[in-house]
Computed example of a mutant assay.
Amino acid sequence: MKTALAILRGINVSGQKRVPMNELKHLFGELNCQQVKTYIQSGNVVFTHSATDEEQLARQIEQKIVETFGFQVPVLTRSLSELADIVAQNPFLQEDHTDIDKLHVTFLSDAPDALKRDKIKELAVGADRFALSGKEIYVYCPNGYGNTKLSNTFFENKLKVTATTRNWKTVHELLKMMQSLNPNTER
């Protein structure tokens, strides 16, 4: 069995695309996922599975959400080892005076192509900073995420990929949840 994280984009935000967590857990169970746990209401699901292709599993989850709830929701997945690497490689943690309450990770559906990556690195966004690494963007917003231009929509428009952001506390908690699912789970 493998341990995975599914990150759903845009559910339960301002009353939009309401998905009760108990129903979401049941939906994952119908797709042969086991040890399904959710974290807060914003679409974070950790689970174990035996699927050979996590990208195909993400598409099956998306289709099942459409069938069950009647709307499309992008689903991004990360393995336990991928999330552990994401946490370990945050470049902002190496800096003095980093306020971890101002750290976020934007998860991308795909690694952006080189031209788009190069163009976005040149953009100035005030005091806010970001570091692109593969399919993640580390975001540091000293004035708060609610005041930044570095939103999901900003990155989606510039990079032409699906994006969804979680704060650093949530990312850390999701990693702990994944690690606790099954000590014998393949990482």
Rank of each mutant, 00 (worst) to 15 (best):
D99C: 04
V75P: 05
Q94G: 12
S79D: 08
L80K: 00
Q89V: 02
Q72P: 05
E95A: 12
Q72G: 09
I86R: 03
E82T: 13
K102D: 09
A88W: 12
P91C: 04
H97M: 08
V87D: 12
E82V: 11
S81H: 07
T77V: 12
Q72K: 14
D85W: 11
D101L: 11
I100N: 11
N90K: 11
I100V: 14
G70N: 13
Q89G: 05
S79R: 13
E82P: 08
F71I: 12
D85A: 15
P91Q: 03
A84H: 11
I86T: 14
F71S: 06
N90E: 10
D99K: 00
I100W: 11
Q72A: 06
L76G: 07
Q72M: 09
S81P: 03
L83N: 04
A84I: 08
H97Y: 15
V75R: 02
D85E: 15
L76S: 00
T98A: 06
F71Y: 08
V87M: 07
F92H: 07
G70D: 12
L80D: 01
I100T: 15
T77K: 05
E95F: 02
T77H: 09
E95Q: 14
A88S: 10
V87R: 09
E82C: 01
L80R: 09
F71D: 03
Q72I: 05
Q89W: 09
H97P: 03
L80H: 03
L83E: 05
V75K: 00
F71V: 11
R78E: 06
V73S: 11
D101H: 11
L76D: 04
E82N: 01
G70I: 06
D101F: 10
I86D: 12
V87S: 06
R78V: 01
D99Y: 07
E82W: 02
L80M: 05
T98K: 00
L80Q: 13
D85Q: 13
N90H: 10
S79E: 03
A88D: 14
A88H: 08
E82M: 03
F92S: 02
T77Y: 05
D85T: 14
L76E: 11
L93R: 11
F92R: 10
P91R: 06
F71L: 01
L93G: 10
V73Y: 04
I86M: 04
D85K: 15
P91H: 10
F71P: 06
D85P: 07
E95I: 09
P74D: 09
I86N: 07
A84L: 07
F71M: 13
G70R: 13
V75F: 02
T77E: 06
L83F: 04
T98V: 05
D99T: 08
L83Y: 03
T98W: 01
T98Y: 07
K102M: 08
H97Q: 08
S79H: 02
V73A: 01
S79K: 04
E95W: 07
D85N: 15
L76I: 06
S79A: 04
